[in-house]
Design a binder for these strands. Structure first.
Lengths: 214, 214
DNA sequence: CACCCTCATATTATCGATAATAGATAAAGG
DNA sequence: CCTTTATCTATTATCGATAATATGAGGGTG
């Protein structure tokens, strides 16, 4: 029966998602402090669920927590961002080898995303481009059929989203776009190792752009 | 001055480490429930720090939490263990490519661990073997100079420690041992790609042993 | 002026108590 | 005898209040 399930979410969960939304939306910026009681007052709750929400944001890598001092939205050093890129490259590269699904299906889906990128590029729509770019890479990891791998990949999203926006604002989208079709093309020919090489090339280039910016 | 710093750790931290110790030591087994008030009573604290400690164990992947039901030590399915292996292979493989340190130094350290393994093997000391095996692989990831990669690798320890013990108890240590020297040998000749291949071989074999056991 | 205290203040960490919930058990109805 | 509904119980989730702590301001001292 199509009974509507009203999911009673705990306060902690609700607060957590609101805070995450704010971080992603940029209402909360890196460096901002999260004061438990202040937030509690805003939501009309006690300190406890806010505190728990913050701790769980910490586990997700959104905030940094110092004992007896408090939490603040995490700022990412250049080194950390480089590291995150390397981890992603490792995961994506290995996913290409594992790829469980039909290569055809994977290629098709990847093509969908490159098309979106292409479209966004011609409209100079950075937000859409960024999203499609993200989905492209996520699709690769998804194809491994390894949930943990995907969840780890996702956990790095926060750090990289920041820089992605910056890089994509400062770099010609066509150059970024051009890094993707070769990967798909290699896959289409079932040359997984080659696809891996183009993936490495992709990350090498991103690194270069990032370096020139910072 | 050599003044001894008594680190005043928060109750949460203390409880957390005690619980982790118990999980690793096997005092707490997969499936066991963690009841907040019961643990609180044992430690003579209130519910709050226990609850926080448990949530942080959850973040670390040691326990599973169900709303309004509670937490229990996580049990790992075969699928999850396989996934964890794949993630480790991805990270180690990419670390071999990144390896920042002098290859010589790396080779030397890896040799140290293979020697320990060899020694433990001849004494049929599974515990030592397992530890050296672990260190061997951890050293590889460490050599990448990527802290996040190492910390993710570490986070998979829990799941794999369980199976490592089982596999190593049931598989001739010499077969397991034999999988490592080729990796070092390739590295010594600066053939990183080859080293990667032997690493893949290593994980393939472990997977085989694991399959026959379950 | 630099340094080391002391104290005030803002905020986290912890407490003990209560409310809310899931799951088990018993009762009711067909 | 089975199914559904009500009640009970163990436990988590949340509350409001208090204790403990870090940080910064001021004030004294060399």
């Amino acid at each position: 029966m199509g009974k509507i399930v009203i999911k009673r979410q705990s306060l902690t969960e609700q607060i957590k998602s609101i805070l995450i939304d704010r971080i992603i939306a940029g209402t909360l910026n890196p460096g901002d402090r999260l004061k438990e009681l202040q937030i509690a007052e805003e939501f009309g709750t006690s300190q406890a669920p806010v505190r728990e929400a913050i701790r769980s944001l910490q586990a997700l890598g959104y905030v940094e927590h110092l004992p007896h001092v408090g939490a603040q939205i995490k700022t990412f050093s250049q080194k950390e961002i480089e590291e995150a890129h390397q981890v992603r490259e490792a995961l994506e590269g290995h996913s290409l080898i594992l790829a469980n699904v039909e290569i055809e299906t994977l290629v098709e889906e990847l093509n969908k995303h490159t098309k979106t990128m292409h479209q966004a590029m011609s409209e100079n729509n950075n937000a859409t481009f960024s999203m499609a770019d993200n989905l492209f890479h996520r699709t690769i990891v998804e194809s491994s059929g390894n949930k943990q791998m995907l969840s780890i990949w996702d956990s790095l999203r926060m750090q990289l989203q920041v820089i992605a926006t910056i890089v994509e604002a400062a770099t010609p989208l066509d150059k970024l776009y051009a890094l993707h079709p070769p990967i798909v093309a290699s896959l289409k020919r079932k040359h997984r190792e080659n696809a891996g090489r183009f993936l490495a090339e992709h990350y090498r280039e991103i690194g270069t752009y990032w370096d020139t910016l910072s």
